[in-house]
Design a protein around this nucleic acid. Structure first.
Lengths: 240, 240
DNA sequence: CGGAATGTTGATATGCCTCAACTAAAGTGG
DNA sequence: CCACTTTAGTTGAGGCATATCAACATTCCG
């Protein structure tokens, strides 16, 4: 049974080289765990959190609340992710973070993290790199969601989630959890839920992918990659 | 006449607190300057640059090249910005950086920057914060460009550029430079150039803004903010 | 002065949104 | 356990925003 320290280390090792001493320092971090109800907010737009969130199980998402009250999901996060690491250096949250389905998180005091980075700079660099990969994912979302047709956006999104779930160790065979409703999927892709439903049927029709009951089944990854014009380079899964 | 060190310091001071010793360390940085022709690429998708780019004059943009060859601009950058700071910790560029109109840049060796950060951690934090603000701008672009109507996207974009040009000291009265063609503006907002032209006329019709010959004139900022649902909080112009 | 790039306008086609109705599944209280 | 309610998913019809195609005007530049 992996501890939450293991989960964090697994993620950092996926893109950064860390020494045993670095690992040991991470294992000494004080982490408070917390269970989240489905849709529960962890941090809200406007807050100034003093703790960083580590996803331990389930999934967590970031979203903007627009003046109209509409919601735009910005990204979804897997165990090992630090979905609000940017709050370490930006005082006021410009977006909210909530659970998608039931989830559990770890909370690490900003103070402890900053002390850790001062003591072991490579850990600071690793978390910095983590925030930079986040930014790369946002850039991909801009390109994907602005101007591509609905089913292409959806294909791209499914490809990304399939890859990231793999890195997080959540894939079983060709299936991974993705506990979004079609409405939420639409709020991620910038589509109405009616159109979301129709685009989903279109993708099902290609035989490349199935998405139902919060599970994503990848039937033909190569085909879906082509439909979604997906190139995983931006995920930066290379151990530097 | 400000030096390129002044330009960088001005930007870092806009969001980070730095001591005189930090400033002095920045002033010792070796910076190679380079003039760029309009549209010239600085770094390309797939490259692994060894230098960080500092915008000194003119403007620089980041963009994705899509498989179809189409271009999606991700962000534009002003003097003082470090538009490819993420390359410090991500080996392969997932996007390109080019000049918009004539521009000049400074090039700082990654090695020198990393040495500087090790010596003076607050400077590392300041540049980290810089990259986090970039990410916040990307998040805003996701929300703005996915699902909002064309003229709203454009109004939001103009508001952002007006604010950022102000921080960069480029505003003269109610006017600031924005040397984009309508085609490029469309490639930023995810609109065809025909629609871009029509949305621009629509905005002109409101009397809130004028955009012509690469100059942006803000005639009624409050009105344009309302049209574009613009809240500058995400720009994080607070001296932490 | 001539050619190229940029901006403008009109007409048509298409993708997506909205409204509306209905089905299926899941949870609730009697 | 079943009727009831609620939520999620599905389908159809109509309208609107934007893409595309095409022509033309304007500005820039050699």
């Amino acid at each position: 049974m992996p501890t939450f320290h293991d989960i964090l280390l697994r993620k950092l090792h996926a893109h950064s080289f860390l020494t045993d001493a670095d690992d040991a320092a991470i294992r000494n971090l004080r982490i408070l765990t917390k269970a989240l109800a489905p849709e529960e907010d962890v941090v809200r737009q406007g807050d100034s959190p003093q703790f960083a969130v580590l996803v331990i199980s389930g999934m967590v998402a970031r979203y903007h609340t627009m003046p109209s009250g509409q919601r735009q999901y910005l990204s979804v996060h897997y165990p090992g992710d630090l979905p609000d690491a940017q709050a370490l250096f930006l005082d006021v949250m410009d977006h909210s973070v909530c659970a998608i389905g039931p989830a559990s998180i770890g909370m690490i005091a900003h103070k402890d993290l900053l002390t850790l980075f001062a003591l072991r700079p490579p850990l600071g660099s690793a978390v910095w790199r983590e925030t930079l990969i986040d930014a790369a994912i946002f850039r991909a979302a801009i390109t994907n969601n602005c101007g591509q047709l609905g089913h292409i956006r959806m294909a791209h999104f499914f490809c990304e989630q399939y890859c990231r779930a793999g890195v997080a160790g959540l894939r079983k065979g060709k299936t991974c959890p993705l506990p979004l409703s079609q409405t939420q999927l639409g709020q991620t892709l910038g589509l109405s839920f009616v159109t979301t439903n129709r685009m989903l049927q279109k993708l099902r029709g290609t035989g490349a992918v199935e998405f139902r009951n919060g599970m994503l089944e990848m039937r033909d990854f190569d085909k879906l990659k082509e439909i979604g014009q997906f190139d995983p380079a931006y995920l930066h899964f290379d151990n530097a």
